[in-house]
Computed example of a mutant assay.
Amino acid sequence: MSSYIDLKQQGFSVLRQGLTADELQRLDDTCRQLLVTGREVLARRSQDPDMATARERDERAPVVVGESSNPMEVCRIEWLAGSTPYIQDHLSNRLQRLISDIAQEPFHLFKDKCNFKHPGGGAFGVHQDIAAYRHFDTHYHITAAIALDPATLQNGCLEVAPRYLSEHDAEDVEQILATPMGPRPLFNYHRGGTHNGDIEAAISAKFEWQPITAQAGDVILFDSYVPHRSARNDSAFDRRMLFFTFAAGTAHKDLYDSYYASKRNDPGNPIFHISTPTRHR
């Protein structure tokens, strides 16, 4: 089955060893340095919150989010293409061409991040990305998730609901949205609170879940409608994964800059913390 058919029918496709050894090494080096930078940001934030806030609105700085259970540890870092020449000049362009070719229409970079799921790092609840992304006047996206470390059942690999289009009832759906892959459901989900963004439990219980284990260098493509989740990292090692999200349509060439301008000006807004283990949920 082709990646296009996979995405259309089940919302995801897996490209085994989609990165070269050189690309993987460059990304590993980049993310190690980003983690150092991120920890420095969190340390400054704890010492002088007002100054840290001003610095973090600087459009040249990466966006750093701490773990809810340990605010001094990095949960994720965003604005990778904006702050990292290698990612901007090489990787994001290659992924854009790949996704546009597979989906058979233009896509443009919307957002990016590296999730550092450290040992004991929090789980991500059952959610659809479209619950957050639709606030930016864009209604279909494909994310390329790149494994920098092996992703296993023990350390909280990505899990998806491949038959979500049929495994639900009409009352489970808040809205049907038109997409390049056909009509897609937005399921009922929580607004605010500790479960912000999570699909209601009675709905997610109907899905059959498929874990996607991966080796470093594997690329998982998934769209913004497939329900997904990941468990806590119960291993002794990090589970780092990069996510590059692209929006469909020629009208979204400048969406990356406008998205991060919004995030920097209102970092605590719950739409930026859908189903994440962060304190802004």
Rank of each mutant, 00 (worst) to 15 (best):
V74F: 09
A123F: 09
I142F: 03
H108Q: 13
A52W: 09
A61G: 01
L80S: 07
H141P: 00
A61V: 08
A61M: 12
I87N: 13
T84M: 14
I146A: 03
R163Y: 04
Y133V: 02
D48Q: 11
Y86C: 03
T152E: 07
Y140L: 01
D137H: 09
H139G: 08
F107R: 01
R134I: 06
E73N: 12
P119V: 12
D89H: 12
E73G: 08
P150T: 06
V64S: 05
R60H: 12
D149C: 10
Q128N: 02
P150N: 11
E56P: 11
A52K: 10
L98K: 06
D129K: 04
R134S: 06
F124C: 12
R97S: 10
L153V: 08
A147G: 10
E67S: 13
L109Y: 04
A52P: 15
G125H: 05
R134Y: 03
A123D: 09
D50A: 15
C75D: 15
R76W: 12
A103M: 06
A123H: 13
D58R: 01
I146R: 05
P106Y: 03
F116Y: 15
L153Q: 13
E67G: 07
L109N: 06
L95T: 01
L80R: 01
M72C: 08
D89W: 01
C75Q: 15
Q104R: 08
I142L: 02
P119K: 02
I146L: 12
H108N: 15
N93I: 00
G82S: 10
G120S: 11
Q96N: 04
S69E: 12
E56D: 14
G120R: 09
F136H: 06
A123S: 15
L80M: 13
D137R: 04
W79M: 15
A147Y: 06
I130D: 00
G82C: 08
R76Q: 14
E56Q: 12
G121C: 09
E105Y: 08
I99N: 01
H141M: 03
T138S: 15
R94F: 00
A161Q: 04
A151P: 10
D58F: 01
D50Q: 15
